[in-house]
Design a protein around this nucleic acid. Structure first.
Lengths: 338, 338
DNA sequence: AAACTTTATGAAATCGATAACACTTTTGCC
DNA sequence: GGCAAAAGTGTTATCGATTTCATAAAGTTT
């Protein structure tokens, strides 16, 4: 049933029906007439027709690199919370760290089928700047600061500093670093800087031989930990850029008679579920993923409501959660400490 | 720029432009003309207008209970793979196990804004049958069999049977069961039946005092394990409906001087990352989540292409992954066994 | 009472495409 | 050459809403 048929059924004009649903001058009499007819027929305006006419889709595109990563999933949950509350729909593109998919996602934007975009990306290339710069849609970048755009990010540098400093404060003198590619500004570069900050504050100098780069998975963490600890066996505390990597390192220790935390302390960033229940519960820094998602979505909706909002970034704080991997016993009865 | 302006620019009729993009009789001459004009202007048809006119949106709605659960995330990844390849967009609704949200999602369907639906639900009520039955859209149900609808599910019963049988085959005589609500047919009912199958095959009888029901999280697993093992301390092997619950049980053992696997064997279903790296690596049954998602999406697209496809369910197989929690040592050098 | 403003109304134009239709031209075949 | 089928074309109606516009009635101010 379309608006014309419905209007005829209700005994009013098309315009009156439209005004009923969108607000506008309408007498109480017609209002009742339409309300009754809606009750009787279950009529509702077609979204597609509304989209075409109003040029607003009430859909937001979320682009992310990997859905089955706990951090991404939580950010999307946060986004979903807010969009849902405001009657917006969430269009999801999982790029799987694949350029082809990322391009097809950006193609969507060109086609103007969404009102706004939230981008959770790890590596920004020159092409990104070009494409994003020419975007006429409201855009939020989630997970890192990218100059010139609205960004919500975590204090990755502070988080890494806190984790490393925690181990140094326990008297360790030979820190090691297990990071990820520096092309990833947040998890790669910023966390390395945080690590170096902590060393500097303790009067130590970062040594390249005590640093290694891994991929984002446990397997790689295992392998790089093996390489690093073979090369520099005197390392007595190891900062890992992600929980997954730290868990890989932990597996290596477990199978090579390296005691954690006695011989080697471990600390990471992420506070994942796996890290909480690992063979040695992992000291890690909690970032507020869900909150970040909520804020990003809210800010996007704000931009939609008030165009020309000034571009400004926002950095969320963090919380260090000490656990056994740095020799911190858990409080009795609490094995899940957030 | 709309099709009229573009057609004028290219020097052809609107119909020719439409035929260019949708296929249809068109001379090579005009084809070139339009191709050049596209190159020059970057014109592309408006999706909204196409949606309105063709009554197809090329969008698929995915409804799920919890995004930040590994199994859900992997299913969505599988769905995304296939939809993406076929030029379909994925609309996501995270119900957070909340009726309000589930209703608003179903409202979307009423509004006809998507071509098809994939539903990942855990608990089906009478209301579900009503709403789903009156749905005029192609629908796939993912994760359990629901009579009368197209379903892709896992062999939950077989999986639970295999996990339990594995422990009984090692000579354990006093099995226990830690499950979830029976309102959840797949993870609740079917897995309990599988547990009972295994007992029966071993000449044992299920005893209510050796069974408990937990929620879906580790905390609840911990609490219910505590209750169960206090009530029936002779239990020497425990089947858990999910990895999370098993990890909770494992934490309880760890803090109460119950040795795993010597005093108590543990086996579960899910094969999650956390279970693989837990303090005692967890024997678990792998289900093919990603594959299930891919199949569901593919079958949905098939339905879209060929309406009136007969309704039939499909059940995917499983693979038991023995690990230390049942006394199975991991093969040397492989700590990640899938 | 006149002059304005606010409220109320429906006809018609519009958003940007596709599909039906009527028509002409080309091709294939006997 | 004749005749049917296939290929190629542009005009027009249509999808289902919103928005403009012209106009009228009601309410408010001078």
């Amino acid at each position: 049933m379309n608006i014309t048929e419905f209007a005829a059924y209700a005994g009013v004009s098309k315009a009156a029906v439209s005004r009923y649903f969108n607000g506008g001058y309408l007498s109480q009499e017609k209002r009742d007439l339409i309300a009754n007819a809606v009750e009787a027929t279950g009529y509702h305006p077609s979204l597609q027709a509304q989209m075409l006419r109003t040029r607003r889709t009430r859909q937001v595109l979320v682009i992310l690199p990997k859905l089955s990563s706990e951090s991404c999933a939580r950010m999307v949950e946060g986004i979903s919370d807010v969009l849902d509350q405001n009657g917006y729909q969430l269009l999801l593109v999982n790029t799987a760290n694949d350029n082809t998919r990322e391009l097809s996602a950006l193609n969507l934007l060109q086609r103007n089928t969404v009102d706004g975009v939230i981008l959770i990306a790890t590596i920004f290339t020159a092409e990104h700047r070009t494409v994003l710069g020419s975007l006429r849609l409201p855009l939020m970048i989630l997970g890192q600061q990218y100059p010139g755009f609205c960004c919500i990010s975590h204090d990755d540098r502070g988080a890494a500093r806190a984790a490393t400093a925690h181990m140094l404060a326990k008297g360790r003198k030979h820190p090691g670093f297990l990071g990820v590619t520096m092309m990833d500004k947040a998890a790669g570069l910023d966390r390395r800087r945080g690590y170096e900050d902590a060393l500097q504050a303790a009067g130590l100098y970062p040594q390249p031989t005590r640093m290694a780069i891994a991929a984002f998975d446990m397997e790689s963490g295992y392998e790089q930990a093996a390489a690093l600890l073979t090369r520099a066996p005197d390392i007595d505390c190891l900062f890992c850029a992600t929980d997954s990597i730290a868990i890989g390192a932990l597996q290596y220790c477990r199978t090579h008679h390296i005691r954690v935390p006695e011989d080697l302390m471990l600390a990471a960033v992420g506070n994942s579920e796996a890290g909480r229940v690992a063979s040695v519960p992992l000291t890690s820094v909690q970032l507020h993923y869900r909150t970040a998602g909520q804020i990003a979505a809210q800010r996007l909706l704000d931009q939609l409501a008030h165009p020309h909002t000034p571009v400004e970034g926002q950095v969320l704080d963090y919380a260090l959660i000490p656990r056994s991997s740095t020799g911190d016993a858990l409080p009795q009865g609490n094995f899940w400490a957030e």
